[in-house]
Simulated scan of single mutants.
Amino acid sequence: MRVRGIVLPEREERTFRIDGDRLRTDPVGGGEAVVDGGWLLPGLVDVHTHPGTEEAKEGTFDDETLRRHLTEHRDAGVLLVRTPGTSARVPEWVDEDPELPRVRSAGRWLATPGRFFPGYGRDIGEDELVRAAVEEAESSSGWCKIIGDWKWNDPAVPLDLMTAAVAAVHAAGGRVAVHCQTAEGCHNAVLAGADSLEHGMHLAPDLLDRMAAQGTAYVPTLGVFGARADARRAEEPSGSRDAWLTGWAGMQSNVRAAHEAGVTVLAGTDSFPCGTVAAEAAWLARTGLPAEAAVGAASWAARSWLGLPGLTDGAPADLVAFDTDPTLTPEALAHPSRIILRGRVVA
């Protein structure tokens, strides 16, 4: 099979031969042209999604739900996902199934007392956090996810403990994602050297330069918060409601500021149904990320951050094609004309 089109972000016309599950550029030769023209992107990426677990099922995790969620991602052109925490470790059969997106998992959510939904993740004492973080990273795709804070007026995981956990995971060759929605939680995650901030409500702008310098990515998951904003505004004033709205406003203003500071901003949905990362990219663009960066946050930039190449010789044959340039027509990102996963035509 052959594919031809204008490759983003390079904006060069290229022709690839699909060799098994790899892309080849020389020699291209014959074969059926499954894409002939248009725009080619590396497969879309959702870096914050929780396939296999739904709130309606009280945190339970099962293979049927996992397969359904991953199929929803695939059918939308999302061919790589990072799962920053689930109720159970992602089973090995996922990586062996050629019909499903590639998965980078972070094991089970790590929740110290009072900092998560009871029973949803791995409930541990603070004295167990360092050891548990290494265990989850080593038993997954190299990631672990720490719930760094929870309620708006409760203390976050202490800085010295977060620093020790991050250092231990890094020493073991892993990476750390931190859920943070309070100013203290964001502060501690950044100063501890976390690899990604998930949500980042109340993130102080003066931390952005440090995030850029140390490579801490920002995953604001705007869509899931934006969907709740009107309902929160309609509530009676309270400490919780007012803190939430202040944090929501800060998240939006921080997107462009983070990009301008050199922080890697990425697209993650944290919501259901799965397969809606195009809508998250649109949120990023609406809040000030340049259009090309917003699309990249859900494609090539996210793949690079997770250690995979774009559309080059020898790269995985995971790509999506579009009839129009999605950086100029943002709504096009939700409507790929062709989806190819592991060298096989999906749609």
Rank of each mutant, 00 (worst) to 15 (best):
D36V: 08
G114D: 11
H50S: 02
M1P: 02
S304D: 15
S139D: 11
L266R: 05
S141L: 11
L311C: 04
G31T: 04
L66M: 08
D75C: 00
T25N: 07
P27R: 11
H69M: 09
R115N: 07
D19F: 05
A192S: 14
V103I: 12
F117M: 13
R104H: 12
R256Q: 13
P336S: 13
N153A: 13
D63P: 02
G173P: 03
P336Q: 04
V94N: 02
A249P: 05
A156R: 00
V45L: 07
Q252E: 14
E64K: 14
L289N: 09
E99K: 12
A332Y: 13
V346I: 15
P237Q: 02
T86I: 01
A189F: 07
T312Q: 05
L197M: 13
L289S: 07
L207H: 08
G288M: 09
H335N: 12
W150H: 12
R344K: 11
V81L: 01
V130Y: 07
V176F: 08
S87A: 14
D160K: 05
E72N: 09
A217T: 06
A167P: 01
A177N: 14
D325T: 14
W305R: 14
L333Q: 09
E72D: 15
S253M: 12
R241C: 09
R11K: 12
A106P: 05
A278N: 07
V224K: 10
G193W: 00
R68V: 12
K151G: 10
G114I: 07
A317V: 03
V169E: 01
P98Y: 03
W93G: 11
W152S: 15
W109E: 06
A298V: 08
A258E: 01
V255A: 06
D270W: 05
R122S: 11
R115W: 01
W152P: 05
R115P: 02
P42S: 13
P326D: 06
I340R: 08
T83Q: 11
T83E: 14
R344D: 04
A227C: 10
K145L: 09
R228F: 10
E10T: 12
A33Q: 09
A317T: 00
S240I: 15
E64I: 13
L161S: 04
G193T: 02
W248T: 03
D230H: 07
C186A: 15
P9V: 08
